[in-house]
């Protein structure tokens, strides 16, 4: 009889622990941004000699895995837009063609950031927590990709106060890049998060890519904004 009770109890405890672990990811996701929002970001690629190329992006996100971005600068890229729906990504170049499918590991901007870095969906969509441990004031999370289509198979995330401080991204067992979050800023509407993400890669020594958030606010967004037909019209919804 005891065994009959023990088996479901063990299963219950196992699942409770697993969900509790993944719950921290959902918490981090919501600390970084609300479920539905718009933002303005500056993406800076810095070369070893210090020269820079800057991109300004207007980005909208809804739910866990719908992201669309519009390039406002530089002039040569102005009007380009990208869409991500789960694992699918497209790039639209005005006047050239219909939106084209693009790969997550390639880069529409060049530099250290790839497409999945620029069109990042919630961590809880792509990763599950394998283990977690405390180190001084930080929580160290070992994250594993949920499937093969995720850009990095493993992340080591250093967390403080439910916000990432540093993320190490691994693919093929190799450290591909390190993302460092800094400058905690109050964006209003209860959003207090790092405003700067700096990325370096041992594969591109001397290069650095930085994302600076200037504005991030909740906004009710229609699902239709996240469709291929709407990509050419993304500028129209900017207020």
């Amino acid at each position: 009889m005891k065994k009959i009770f023990c088996i479901p109890l063990t299963i219950f405890i196992f699942y409770s622990l697993a969900f509790a672990k993944d719950d921290i990811l959902s918490k981090i996701d919501r600390r970084l941004n609300p479920e539905s929002f718009e933002s303005y970001r500056k993406l800076i690629n810095i070369e070893p000699d210090g020269t820079k190329k800057e991109f300004i992006l207007y980005t909208i996100k809804k739910g866990k895995d719908k992201v669309a971005s519009l390039f406002l600068s530089p002039k040569s890229d102005q009007g380009r837009s990208t869409l991500r729906l789960g694992e699918n990504m497209w790039l639209y170049i005005p006047g050239i063609a219909k939106p084209l499918r693009i790969a997550s590991m390639q880069s529409v901007t060049g530099g250290v950031f790839n497409n999945s870095d620029i069109m990042r969906v919630d961590f809880s969509v792509e990763y599950t927590v394998v283990s977690q441990k405390k180190e001084e004031n930080y929580l160290i999370l070992d994250l594993k990709a949920k499937n093969d289509s995720v850009a990095y198979e493993k992340l080591i995330m250093k967390v403080k106060n439910d916000l990432p401080v540093q993320i190490q991204c691994y693919a093929g067992g190799i450290l591909i890049k390190t993302i460092t979050y800094s400058k905690i800023k109050d964006f209003g509407n209860g959003i207090v998060r790092p405003a700067i993400m700096e990325t370096t890669s041992p594969l591109q020594k001397g290069y650095k890519s930085v994302i600076v958030f200037a504005r991030l606010k909740p906004r009710k967004l229609k699902d239709s904004y996240f469709t291929l037909d709407f990509l050419p019209k993304l500028e129209d919804i900017r207020k």
Binding site: Y40, I44, K239
Partner: peptide, 22 residues
């Protein structure tokens, strides 16, 4: 190259305008 080297981000230049030309 002579542009400033910090991470300042002034959005004024990118505010939505009724008329745009590129």
């Amino acid at each position: 190259f002579a542009q400033n080297q910090d991470y300042d981000f002034n959005l004024d230049e990118f505010e939505k305008k009724s008329f745009d030309c590129r």
